[in-house]
Amino acid sequence: MARRRHRDRPHRGRHRLRPHRTTPSPPKTEWTSTVAQRRWTYATHGRISRPPNPVGGTVYVVTDDDTSNDHTVYALDTGTVAMKWTYDLNGLSASLLTMPNGVVYVGCHDGNVYALDAATGTRKWMYSTGGGADATPAVANGVLYVGGGELVHAVDAATGTEKWVYTVGGVRSASPAVANGVL
Results as ranks from 00 to 15, higher is better:
residue 77 D to G: 03
residue 110 D to V: 08
residue 1 M to S: 13
residue 158 A to E: 00
residue 152 V to D: 00
residue 157 A to R: 03
residue 181 G to I: 12
residue 16 R to Q: 13
residue 106 V to G: 09
residue 100 P to C: 08
residue 100 P to L: 14
residue 50 R to P: 00
residue 130 G to F: 08
residue 59 V to R: 13
residue 27 P to V: 02
residue 171 V to K: 06
residue 102 G to C: 14
residue 173 S to T: 07
residue 167 T to K: 01
residue 130 G to V: 09
residue 15 H to L: 14
residue 168 V to Q: 01
residue 126 M to G: 09
residue 182 V to C: 08
residue 102 G to R: 06
residue 31 W to F: 07
residue 93 S to F: 02
residue 80 T to C: 06
residue 56 G to V: 13
residue 180 N to S: 11
residue 84 K to Y: 08
residue 17 L to V: 07
residue 117 D to R: 10
residue 84 K to I: 10
residue 97 L to T: 05
residue 126 M to Q: 10
residue 168 V to H: 03
residue 135 A to V: 01
residue 67 T to D: 09
residue 48 I to H: 07
residue 75 A to P: 06
residue 46 G to F: 08
residue 103 V to Y: 06
residue 176 P to K: 00
residue 120 T to A: 08
residue 181 G to F: 14
residue 154 A to R: 00
residue 101 N to Y: 04
residue 126 M to W: 03
residue 173 S to N: 13
residue 162 E to K: 00
residue 23 T to H: 07
residue 153 H to N: 01
residue 148 G to M: 13
residue 10 P to C: 12
residue 160 G to M: 02
residue 2 A to V: 11
residue 136 T to F: 04
residue 119 A to L: 08
residue 104 V to S: 04
residue 74 Y to S: 09
residue 6 H to T: 15
residue 177 A to I: 03
residue 103 V to T: 03
residue 38 R to D: 07
residue 73 V to N: 04
